[in-house]
Design a protein around this nucleic acid. Structure first.
Lengths: 340, 340
DNA sequence: ATGAAAGCGCTAACAA
DNA sequence: TTGTTAGCGCTTTCAT
């Protein structure tokens, strides 16, 4: 009874084979047959024929008709850090729980690419978009708003759309406090030897972290001068270079070093690898980011791990609320430090 | 001239506004107007009106009509390792170069989820599917074949479909050889103290790596008994446990330890962290996987880095060739070792 | 309990 | 140089 066609089977093919009308096949196959009072035997017959012919519903057609897509879109700069990978992992998990299909676009760090990707997702009629790490949020939210597509920003917030972000200021404050406590314990004097390394000065997340860092330092009676905050970008090379310069200028490591991202931390570790251990021991290291191998290195590092899972579930909660009003939620990161 | 509607603008709306027919608008907006000899002024006018009204083409409709989707699908178990993240990164890059839209589905490690995800992608009419790390390839390739969807397996090959995979056997051989060379240099005796740790015995990739390991060991006149190959799974906890047991039983580390994955290596490092350095120095460590922080730890580790970029570009080359015949390509991994 | 038919937004053959 | 129209595969109202 199996029919051979060059194209994929449609409900018309199945209808032909079953001796029923296309609408009956449609009802039988999409589960709405109960309210149409289709005879169970008919349904059984149709289902059998459908599966024998490898029928798969064409969601493009269904969703065009129903004016949805069943797609949930995510815009992400890259996958080059654990954090972004965790974000997309959490996103995919939530989407699957909703029986939708994730469309994750890695759009690069450029604003242009992110705009293009957003447009592209909208053209696919995605039901909603989660935008993570937006370089320039405003044009993105404008485009989504014009297209009436529900959207939420994660990690980098937008001033004119629902957003969820890590509480960077408080997190940085907590991390810095913990670093000072450790400096105390090691009897190091952090006065005027306390540095912040990495990130871009014009990015909100960097500014917030620097703010939290400065606050906590002030509270510990360590004023932070401008030259203590070295925003050398997000590459490991530039971080390594910046730390090298700092070391050469001072003739020693700072007693307290707050590193702004895991990528920068790679550069820091590369530099430290050349130094004798007793020098590294005289420096309290903190990183506002996480990688499972860092706690296993030869020197202790205090880390702040962002909660990708909570960020995403909060983002979905916002989408579910149906409100597109501006709002900003904070998620606290976790302090990770397992050495005495 | 902007019109207010509750729904998204369509070519009919634009046609109305422009005083042209929908087909003219269609041609003007999708770039095929040159061969239709539409007047450039008309095109300009239409484009202007379209952008004023925030028109975005509905790709669902376009692709339904054209019987494509412009979507390229990828099935991936998880994002929990650099390798998988790099795979999806490379995939997304290639897809964007082709001006298509990536639909990346993280389907979990279970075969069921992978089958479901494949079905789902097919229902979206994806133009092709790249399947990475398939737990059970056969049902997946059957489903794709029945639906006539071009597909390619990456990392875990399928015996009945085009596949690209890391040359695990040769890679493991090379890694093992390098480890023996290092043992030689350190004047360690690897005889009967050479172990393989991690992975699942029933997975082809683990088997191939174990094979390469065994071959290289034999070549160095070190026969590998069955109990030297400890396939404890892919979790860091089980690897830590297995190594603990081994250590307790022997009273020392093996002189040569080949670790099968980065996740297992986390467990290994957790165990090593408790040991004095001079013990670790008496053990040559190798890992068939890569993480940027590992080369920066206190002890040297030889690593094999899989080439996600090459795997993916080779996969696309297969898709481009248009052939759906069974074929298996190998990509050599890179040996990473930067210490003396 | 089921069939006929309109229409989702677009493309492309056919007309003019 | 442009307009008209059929149809991609599906859902759903209306009819029977």
């Amino acid at each position: 009874m199996t029919v051979k066609t060059r194209h994929k089977a449609t409900i018309y093919d199945i209808a032909q084979l079953a001796g029923n009308s296309p609408s009956t096949v449609s009802y039988a196959l999409n589960g709405t047959w109960k309210q149409r009072r289709i005879k169970p035997e008919t349904v059984e017959k149709i289902k059998k024929i459908a599966s024998e012919n490898g029928y798969q519903v064409n969601l493009q057609a269904r969703n065009l008709r129903k004016a949805t897509s069943g797609l949930l879109g995510m815009i992400l700069p890259e996958h080059d850090t654990r954090f972004f990978a965790e974000l997309s992992q959490a996103f995919a998990l939530n989407v699957r729980q909703r029986e939708a299909c994730p469309a994750i676009v890695l759009s690069g760090r450029g604003s242009e690419g992110q705009i293009e990707s957003t447009r592209s997702l909208i053209s696919y009629n995605v039901d909603a978009i989660v935008i993570a790490g937006a370089t320039d949020p405003l044009p993105l939210s404008r485009i989504c708003r014009e297209a009436k597509v529900p959207h939420v920003f994660v990690d980098h917030a937008s001033p004119d759309a629902p957003s969820v972000t890590t509480d960077s200021t408080k997190g940085a404050q907590e991390l810095t406090r913990a670093m000072f406590a450790r400096a105390d314990k090691l009897r190091l004097d952090p006065k005027s030897q306390t540095y912040f390394l990495g990130g871009d000065a014009y990015l909100p997340s960097t500014r917030e972290r620097a703010l939290g860092f400065t606050k906590a330092a002030s509270a510990a009676h360590v004023p932070i001068l401008d030259d203590r905050i070295i925003t050398c970008g997000y590459s490991s090379d530039s971080a390594e270079r910046a730390l090298t310069e700092l070391y050469d200028a001072r003739g020693a490591l700072p007693s307290l070093l707050f590193v702004n991202s895991i990528i920068c931390f790679e550069g820091v570790v590369r530099f430290l690898a050349q130094l004798p251990e007793r020098e590294i021991e005289r420096c309290v290291l903190g990183c506002f980011d996480y990688d499972p191998f860092v706690p296993l290195m030869r020197f202790p590092v205090l880390m702040m791990r962002q909660r990708a899972d909570l960020l995403i579930s909060e983002a979905f909660a916002k989408l579910d609320s149906g409100s597109s009003e501006v709002s900003l939620s904070y998620v606290a990161p976790d302090l990770i430090f397992d050495r005495a």
